[in-house]
Computed example of a mutant assay.
Amino acid sequence: MSLAGLTYDVDAVVLDIEGTTSATGFVVDVLYPYSRSRFGALLAERGGDPEVARAVAQVRELTDDPEADAVAVEKTLNAWLDEDRKATPLKTLQGIIWSEGFARGDLVSHFYDDVVPRLRAWHTAGVRLYVYSSGSVAAQRAWFTNSPEGDLTSLVSGLYDTENAGPKQEPESYRRIADATGIGPARLLFLSDRPGELDAARATGWHAVGIRRPGEPYYEQGVGDHAQAGTFDEITITTSGSST
């Protein structure tokens, strides 16, 4: 990092979503109730779908209740939702519901005003962009496809979640992402509002910047000893001799 400010010479930026690119309040106040109201129907009507069945099996395993029926599974999902638990089967089922909600036009995602222009500028400059969120890959794809500014998926080179990468506060997850992208850790920058995630990325040799936006859950707590920015506009990326 340059002493002059938040300037990084990297090849790629990896983005958290909640609290970083987008308001946590939108997820909690809009998306969570939307999924809660549809868990029961999804489990009852499509329990035989492979992805739903796999998620149900994971719920039974995590609760040590191999005989849990759809009612019990729904109760667990709602309890995890209340706890904001980053459980993979919860995120999988939410992703299915949200993807369909976005496709129907029931939902449109949220991005902070500074985010999309900066992502477009970085992409144009040759910086590769990835997403690493606790939300499922399906939910991430729907989020970027159905933004207020249209389909943004062309900006993103890859999507990672707790299933294909691992838990967000474990360094091994960041090693998996670096290996999958083929980019060395020292050439990767992770942006997140959660200090535990920033710690894990840095422990793997990544650059990490904490995003602190007023009103977000981690704003008061801060980001520990990590560099921090209030908006993406405060971050400059240099790569191949250019900067943006």
Rank of each mutant, 00 (worst) to 15 (best):
A4R: 06
T7K: 13
A12Q: 10
L15A: 08
S22N: 04
G25H: 13
V27Q: 09
V27A: 13
D29L: 01
D29V: 00
L31G: 05
P33I: 13
Y34M: 06
S35C: 13
S37R: 15
S37H: 10
R38W: 06
R38L: 09
F39A: 10
G40D: 15
L42V: 08
L43D: 08
E45G: 15
D49G: 00
R54S: 14
A55K: 09
V56K: 03
L62C: 00
T63R: 12
D69R: 03
D69V: 13
D69W: 01
V71F: 14
E74D: 14
E74W: 12
K75S: 15
L77F: 11
W80T: 06
L81I: 12
D82M: 07
D84G: 04
A87N: 11
K91T: 07
K91C: 15
T92N: 05
L93E: 10
Q94E: 15
G95Q: 11
I97N: 06
S99N: 13
S99I: 02
S99Y: 12
G101E: 08
F102Y: 15
R104V: 11
G105P: 04
S109C: 12
S109Y: 02
Y112W: 13
D114H: 12
D114Q: 10
D114P: 02
R118H: 08
L119V: 03
R120D: 03
A121L: 03
W122M: 04
A125H: 03
G126T: 02
R128S: 15
R128I: 02
L129D: 02
Y132E: 05
A138C: 08
A138M: 14
A139F: 12
A142C: 08
W143S: 05
F144L: 15
N146F: 14
N146K: 11
D151G: 07
T153L: 10
L159P: 00
D161R: 12
N164D: 08
A165T: 07
K168I: 10
E170C: 01
P171Y: 01
S173M: 08
Y174R: 08
R176D: 15
A180D: 15
I183V: 11
P185I: 11
A186S: 14
R187Y: 07
L189T: 03
L191S: 06
L191K: 08
S192I: 04
G196W: 12
E197Q: 11
I211G: 04
I211R: 03
P214Y: 06
Y219C: 01
Q221W: 01
D225G: 12
Q228C: 11
A229P: 03
F232T: 01
D233I: 02
I237D: 02
T238G: 01
T239I: 00
G241N: 00
G241W: 00
S242M: 05
